[in-house]
Design a protein around this nucleic acid. Structure first.
Length: 885
RNA sequence: AGGCACGUAGCUCAGUGGGAGAGCACUUCCCUGACACGGAAGGGGUCGGCGGUUCAAUCCCGCCCGUGCCUACCA
């Protein structure tokens, strides 16, 4: 597939073309029968309702980089893709649709509603999959899974029943987090706490049998309708006489006791707390301790129920207003303070959650967590960066039982049947029609479904066919790595650890790489409901997927926040274009070139050739190191500077004379090096820049051994041994070129002007190095007359620059301004003088000389000597220049 | 309230116990036959503040200030 490269790189067509080829050819498919060592990653399944955001883009780009790198490094790579069914979110989407038809789910009934959700899923769900493909994600798309698929549902049921049989799943009636809008229970994690400005109302409760009032403070006055006690601290002297007495609850005219409990903070407010056991988590505990009445005053929608006296039927906020107004009119409102406190909200719809009494299913997670802690502690699973281990332990050690039942319809229905005759519960892998206990057929299946995260927790093995013992599981479980953001460390990672260990008897992943979160400019987490999402696809459209990927890769190391700047993306688009044009240059100079069978062996390699091959080896080693340690940004910067600053800025320029010259042997060896380095460079870059590298790679001369660059070997080492002396000589010549350019630039020598340069060298070996590279100096420094030697005759009027062992002398002649040269020298002298002073001071410190390690001392002494020499030369030059005036 | 981070060039951010880095932006010059999404040469930072450890601190420790996130039952 040879192609002529157009002048500018246009990503759009190239990206679409190659992705189609890759996917249709099955290049991403993982073979469970492969003899190669395995490398596996399961994708953090995006919501079926999801639209690609920056977080997905980062997360999946990093996974793709790892997968492509490992694939090229000889591994059989499985990147398992899929989505979760996002119970509440998806149900909300479809309910909104229904609302536009003036219907709700109850009008349809459960079965029809679920059907409707499936229909939505087929028609509009899962857009994100195609969006991931636009990024170049090399998932094994043939294996795409969905948490509501039959296989995964079987896994969910197997796990639920097993946990139940092991006594790790139970039912209990307690306070849970209730979303009055979604009409379902939520786990603790699904409640987001946000500080909100509100009020602290101070209420006066009349004490029975006295004319005293007890002042209680509350942020939720409407809950007073359900108060069943007032609590004070047992040691609070102010209230000693009141404990045991009653207050008359205003508005309800209910007598409730004054109790003593150590939970009460004497210093806060009046030191007296109203107790509403059915509507507050603390009060719930106190209620149990003191055997109080639990009066629920709300219904499922957050409306006051029949227990709320005259407030029945009022919405909770309206009730609050009315309660406060009524208390005030009765003189029972002491005062109102401004107050800020954390209010819990539903993570799906942001409705203020309600602590609500209800019977729910729980997983007793403590025993599971203990194992999951051990697995990280023992190193079976490594969390990178390690700092996150602490967060993981912190949560795991304080873990609370997990409420897994949800009062919605879209999800895995809990496989439990209640018997109307004997009251027992039958939990079963198969649907049942008769009670296990009394054989009655009067059964009703539990209507609740499971938390979506319950099925997500099984993802690493359910996607591979569990509970069947599949070859895929044998080959690819445990997975090698999990790549995710820290925001779902608890939601997902911790739970996968627990379930993996419990059901697979092995950790779900060997390593967890936790990356930063992409936030908006205010540091806010991007989310659909906040409306602050920037669409990554518009970035892809504008800059190309490769440039976008490179940016994300370069950004990946940031602590916790990533704020994307389009300037930066533009910079990497330029980088891609640079690579493209360097490749065009190569192709133009590789006409009629056929790569030699034995590669670089036997070629007479120039200074420049050896130098670039040396730098190539360095880059190859370093980029592998970086990726091994998840240092994505290091990988990006190593490859950036090798490509641009070494290959393009230097090697291509150094090679031009040889490529344009008449010496056929030199030309051919230069071509071979140019070709070989570029070809290897493309392979090095491919994991980050899959599209452009594939395109160029196929345009190179010669035959490729594999159908795609993604199947070629990833470079790991030197292509051929290079001579360290020759490489150092090249660096020396480059320094000389830089020195000449510096003088030219500083003294405004016209760029086109060819000049005379005298190089006074300290030794014959330096002369030799320079003589070998003299053509480079002629060409890159625009020199037409070069004199090199040890103690050469020095022209009278010169500009002087010093680099290492070489004095660079440029005759002033007619081209250099004496005044400017004086200024330039003064600037240079000032710099060097600082160095000299610095090292003199350092080395005259006796303690430093006595304590510093010898190699440091040696190095600094050398630096001082070099700086002193350079200073001397520059000062002499300055004197001469001044004498000319 | 506790925990975890962060504070480095104008901007966005890397980085290390031994004389401070990148990209973009900026200044000067150049449309030299791959590339102006380019080339060459420059300018720019007492690495948040104060102490401590060390021969040596931007890096380690403590405190402070500022910012962000996570966890938490102060009504």
């Amino acid at each position: 597939m040879k192609t002529e490269l157009p002048k500018g790189y246009d990503p759009t067509q190239v990206e679409q073309k190659w992705f189609d080829v890759w996917e249709q050819r099955g290049d991403f498919h993982a073979d469970e029968n492969s003899p190669k060592p395995h490398y596996s990653i399961v994708i953090p399944p995006p919501n079926v309702t999801g639209v690609l955001h920056m977080g997905h883009a980062l997360n999946n780009t990093l996974q793709d980089i790892l997968c492509r790198w490992k694939r090229m490094s000889g591994y059989e790579v499985l990147w398992m893709p899929g989505m979760d069914h996002a119970g509440i979110a998806t149900q909300n989407v479809v309910e909104k649709q229904l609302a536009t038809e003036n219907k709700d789910r109850h009008d349809l009934g459960r079965e029809a509603f679920v059907e409707r959700v499936w229909k939505w899923r087929e028609e509009s769900g899962g857009q994100i999959i195609n969006q991931l493909k636009r990024l170049g994600a090399s998932c094994d798309w043939q294996r795409e899974r969905f948490t509501m698929d039959e296989g995964l549902s079987t896994a969910v049921r197997e796990v639920f029943v097993s946990l139940y049989e092991d006594g790790l799943i139970y039912r209990d009636n307690r306070l849970i987090n209730w979303c009055p809008r979604c009409h379902t229970a939520l786990s603790d994690l699904e409640v987001e706490h946000e500080d909100k400005h509100g009020n602290l109302w101070h209420l006066r409760y009349p004490v029975q049998g006295t004319d005293q009032y007890l002042i209680v403070a509350t942020t939720r006055p409407e809950t007073m309708l359900g108060d069943t006690a007032v609590a004070v601290h047992p040691e609070d002297e102010r209230y000693q006489g009141l404990i045991g007495k009653n207050v008359l609850l205003p508005l309800m005219d209910r007598e409730i006791p004054i109790i003593a409990d150590e939970y009460v903070d004497m210093a806060f407010g009046s030191g007296a707390v109203k107790i509403t056991p059915a509507h507050d988590f603390n009060d719930f505990e106190i209620g149990k301790r003191h055997d109080l009445e639990f009066i629920n005053v709300l219904d499922e929608s957050g409306m006051i129920n029949e227990n709320g006296g005259s407030y029945v039927g009022m919405e909770r906020n309206a009730a609050r207003t009315k309660v406060v107004a009524d208390l005030e009119s009765q003189g029972l409102l002491e005062k109102v303070d401004n107050y800020t406190n954390a209010v819990g909200e539903c993570y799906r719809c942001k409705t203020v959650i309600e602590p609500y009494m209800s019977k729910q299913w729980y997983v007793a997670v403590k025993p599971l967590a203990a194992e999951a802690i051990k697995a990280v502690d023992s190193g079976q699973t490594r969390i990178v960066p390690q700092q996150w281990e602490k967060t993981y332990y912190e949560w795991m050690n304080n873990i609370q039982d997990w409420c897994v039942s949800r009062q919605i319809w879209w999800g895995h229905r809990i496989p439990a049947w209640f018997c109307d005759d004997c009251g027992e519960i039958t939990v079963s892998r198969e649907d049942v029609s008769r009670c296990q206990y009394c054989d009655s057929s009067n059964l009703r299946q539990e209507t609740d479904v499971l938390d979506t995260w319950f099925s997500s927790a099984l993802w690493p093995f359910s996607t591979m066919g569990w509970p069947e013992q599949t070859k895929t599981l044998q080959k690819f479980y445990p997975t090698s790595c999990l790549v995710t953001g820290f925001d779902i460390l608890f939601f997902w990672v911790a739970r996968m650890m627990m379930m993996g260990i419990k059901f697979m008897d092995d950790v779900p992943f060997k390593e967890v790489y936790i990356h930063a979160l992409v936030r908006d400019s205010h540091g806010q987490k991007m989310s659909k409901s906040k409306g602050n999402v920037i669409d990554p696809l518009t970035i892809v459209d504008e800059y190309g997927a490769d440039a976008f990927r490179y940016t994300l890769c370069a950004f990946a190391a940031m602590g916790r926040d990533i704020k994307l700047s389009t300037d930066r993306i533009g910079g990497y688009r330029n980088f891609v274009n640079k690579l493209w044009n360097a490749s065009r240059f190569a192709l133009m100079n590789l006409e009629n070139f056929e790569p030699a069978e034995d590669g670089l062996a036997g070629l007479s390699l120039s200074q420049a050739d050896q130098w670039i091959l040396n730098r190539y080896a360095f880059a190859a080693v370093e980029v592998n190191n970086a990726l091994t340690n998840y240092k994505f940004n290091d990988a990006a910067s190593i490859l950036y500077s090798f490509t641009w600053h070494e290959f393009c800025d230097w090697y291509i320029e150094l090679s031009k004379d040889n490529l344009y010259g008449d010496d056929i042997v030199t030309r051919q060896s230069t071509q071979m090096v140019l070709f070989t380095v570029l070809e290897g460079l493309l392979r090095m870059l491919h994991p980050i820049l899959p599209f452009v590298t594939e395109e160029i790679w196929h345009a190179l001369p010669g035959e490729r051994e594999t159908a795609s660059i993604m199947q070629a070997d990833y470079p790991t080492a030197a292509l051929i041994e290079t001579d360290a002396t020759v490489v150092a000589d090249m660096e020396l010549v480059m320094d000389v070129i830089r020195a000449i350019r510096n003088v030219r630039g500083e003294l405004d020598v016209p760029p086109g002007k060819r000049i005379k340069v005298v190089l006074d060298c300290k030794s014959e070996s330096v002369v030799q190095a320079i003589m070998t590279g003299q053509e480079y100096i002629h060409s890159l420094a625009r020199v037409d007359n070069l004199v090199v030697g040890v103690a050469v005759e020095r022209p009278k009027q010169v500009s002087t620059q010093v680099t290492g062992e070489v004095e660079v002398l440029i005759p002033l002649a007619d081209l250099i301004n004496v005044v400017e040269e004086g200024a330039r020298l003064n600037k240079e002298i000032e710099k060097i003088q600082k160095d000299v002073t610095f090292f003199e001071k350092k080395l005259s410190n006796e303690k430093f000389v006595a304590n510093a390690p010898p190699h440091v001392l040696e190095k600094d002494r050398g630096k001082l000597v070099a700086a002193e020499k350079k200073l001397e030369i520059l000062q002499q030059s300055l004197e001469k220049i001044l004498a000319l005036k």
